[in-house]
Write a protein that binds this DNA or RNA. Structure first.
Lengths: 205, 205
DNA sequence: AATAATTTTAATCATTTGATTAAATATTTT
DNA sequence: AAAATATTTAATCAAATGATTAAAATTATT
């Protein structure tokens, strides 16, 4: 096996293990020994490849975050789709994505809270406001005279209703769900209904 | 100062410091020394009064959680108010409450994820489903034939749209807000609009 | 094949951190 | 006031943890 090829494999194994451990336990509770064990590697390799726990975390966090918002841009900048279609695609895309990685949102929210700087350069006002989605949203809101709603508030509603079920899952399970109707059914229903609810908000009854 | 009176003061000081440190840093990142310093107390008093960091955390977490949902019960069981009024009250009550303690939701969500057992005994299916609010919600949803929405999904939407702005604040600030329109304005607008949006969902356009 | 460079391992370090202890101080009871 | 009880403090412990080191093993270069 060539040097470079091996490099990549080991590095990737560690990063993948780090992603798993950091995402499930959070930065402070994750021990470097957990990560090494998860990766099946010697503890020292962690520092050999990434210098420190903190550096490794930063890399994983930024990759996680970019992974999370990578889809959003392509959807938002598409000039072929209507506002309604964009919302439908966004909802389906993220509900599926987060179903596969349900720990991701809480991890990202905690990370951003602990270190808000990381968002800068990855996502900002410009990217949102230059998007075709934002223009379509503004246009549709302007049609509705009475409810003078800030487009940001609509965006918050979209994100919150997509993301919250995942970060609140343990609570939802305890408070609301019986055995039959499991969490997945709930999500499937939300895939259908969320776009309807959101369009109602935008159109104003 | 009497023995008992002093007891309460010291204990309360530690608990208050613990609440602050745990809520802002999370369990793992909070050091007992931080808490002792915040309380202006000797480190050993922590163990003298609460045996361990974990015990202290449990107490603070349960109190936080109960504090958080204490309001919900009284609002939900009130037979004098309409569904719409309940939602208006719920929204205003929690937006005000969380404005005063914006770290609380993320703390609770992390705690419940780390230890889902704690919810049991504090809140459960029974409490929700026996409430007058739940009956009113079911009744209103049944009027709407086409959208066969689970009442739980409506409840998730209510909670998510109230809570998410607080847990996503650092992200919202970076992505969406310019200097003028600050976070507080956003919240005030949401106080007015959230009940409208929710009622639209329930009535089905 | 011999040498050089890279990667991996086992052992160890230094700090941090939750917890304890024994003595000192303060408070309550008699 | 004396004795008993409770609270507080300073010092210390033991375990956990991030990091380092020097040697061993592996891979690449000549």
């Amino acid at each position: 096996m060539s040097k470079k090829a091996k490099d990549i494999t080991t590095e990737e194994k560690i990063k993948e293990a780090a992603r798993k451990i950091f995402t499930s336990k959070g930065y402070a509770a994750a021990r470097t020994r957990d990560i090494a064990e998860e990766a099946g590697m010697n503890l020292a390799l962690l520092n050999y490849y990434f210098r420190s726990k903190e550096k490794l975390f930063e890399i994983v966090m930024i990759e996680n975050f970019m992974h999370f918002i990578s889809g959003i841009k392509t959807i938002m900048y598409n000039e072929e789709t209507s506002l309604k279609e964009k919302i439908q695609i966004l909802v389906s895309f993220y509900i599926d994505k987060l179903s596969a990685q349900p720990d991701l949102p809480l991890f990202i929210l905690n990370s951003v809270k602990a270190n808000p700087k990381v968002i800068k350069g990855i996502f900002n006002k410009q990217i949102l406001q230059k998007s075709y989605f934002f223009k379509q949203l503004q246009q549709e809101l302007s049609k509705n005279k009475n409810a003078t709603s800030n487009p940001i508030n609509i965006l918050i509603n979209i994100l919150s209703m997509i993301i919250f079920p995942f970060i609140g899952q343990p609570m939802i399970n305890e408070i609301g769900l019986s055995k039959k109707e499991d969490f997945n059914n709930l999500l499937q229903e939300r895939k259908k209904l969320l776009p309807i609810w959101i369009m109602q908000m935008i159109k104003g009854k």
